[in-house]
Amino acid sequence: MFEARLVQGSLMKKFMEAIKDLVKEANWDCTGTGISLQAMDTSHVSLVSLLLRSDGFDPYRCDRNISLGINMESMAKIMKCASNDDVITIRSEDHPDNVTFVFESPNQEKVCDYEMKLMDIDSEHLGIPDTEYDAIISMPASEFQRICRDLSNIGDSVKITCNKDGVQFSAQGDTGIGKIALKQNAVIDKEDGQVSIELNDPVSLTFALRYLTFFTKATPLASTVTLSVSAKNPVAVEYRVDDIGYIRYYLAPKIEE
């Protein structure tokens, strides 16, 4: 059988919020290592990849590797039934038709049990090559969310330019141009407010703000976001989640042809 108990159940709710608008259905692959998921959006422009390590659960039991084919909208609806301080357990048989979600209140006075039908999903697994990135930008996740929100008011795309002076996000639309520049080590928040840039080569690339905005749904999961950028390559946007794993998104660039 498979059983994974997450004491901080709110994390599962947050992971769900971070993927449900991007991916309609996906396999949750459960192995001894933990729970992982890789899925593209329907237009194959972006990809989400997440890992919840087994040691983040207490207990975690996986007798046999299984894939839980899940409709994200259905699972998101069930996760909304869990309270933020609930302990969440995911459970299934070795050859499952269903998955069970159990929500326990902290004092165990209330136990909710939701059983959901699984789907047979033929998912396409993409091999992501190890890339040497031109620039790796770390910044407060809330700041990245703010930049995507603000520039969405100006245009559909954001041009990310990174050089020795820092990183600039710019958008252009019918009404004009917006530019947001961040300098390295600028303190934006009181805590975790550092902007750091690891620069190998100056780089400039354009991405659709619609998808980056989907990615920022992961903001409640982490204080810091890392953008890894390489010329004419997809950007990797990573949120590392304390004690359990990560959620990583990839987005193909817009390129002049």
Binding site: M40, S43, H44, V45, S46, L47, E124, H125, L126, G127, I128, P129, S157, T206, A208, N233, P234, Y250, L251, A252, P253, K254, I255, E256, E257
Partner: peptide
Amino acid sequence: GLTQKSLKDFFSTA
């Protein structure tokens, strides 16, 4: 103009 690329242009199907 700019063309939106597909991820499949970059990542291989495993």
